[in-house]
Design a protein around this nucleic acid. Sequence first.
DNA 1: TAGTTGATCGTCT
DNA 2: GACGATCAACTAA
Length: 201
Amino acid sequence: MPSKLPRSFYLRPTLQVAKELLGQLIVRNYHGERLVGRIVEVEAYRGSIDPASHAYRGKTKRNEVMFREGGHLYVYFTYGMHFCANVVTRREGIAEAVLIRGVEPVRGIEVMRRLRGKDVTDVDLTNGPAKFCEAFGIKRAQNGVSLMGNEMYLTRAKRILTSKIASTTRIGIQAGVEKKWRFFVAGNPWVSGKHHRVRKG
DNA sequence: TAGTTGATCGTCT
DNA sequence: GACGATCAACTAA
């Protein structure tokens, strides 16, 4: 088994962690099944200096996990029906995190298809933050899970060349729209949004 | 293909 | 009481 990314990976500056998360593998052990995906799209959220962040106005019951030490999973519920998952960064007390927006399935694709429930293409399986959570069985129970444990963790994979990383403004937010804190692997089909989707064949 | 809207409820004001 | 770090179904053309 490849080694887990160490705690020190997550404690560094959030924008750097966000870019380096691209290409890494996220592993989810789900009822005896191993689900693996390659991260291809992320967004950074930076607590007190970022009006778009859930933690901008301080600690609440919902965002408590963002204030923990880097290397935890922050899962939140939104639009009355969806979950989204973030990797918490930096030291305890600094509420920053990276939202996982797009993942390329690597292993366990049949389980992902079953969890998504709908008859969709391989791309539609995981090309969005809520789609990824549904495909990987990530719900309220995974909020606060440590990425140093075995239920979920990340492993180092092939590094993405800097020239392949694109950055744009973040999606679906009102405040902080000017910050280009969305990073993705240019040309990868599992990046969310129709502009990047592969044409139907 | 582009644009619009309904679903659905926890969280914070 | 309003709205959201979304998605999918629908409409029009």
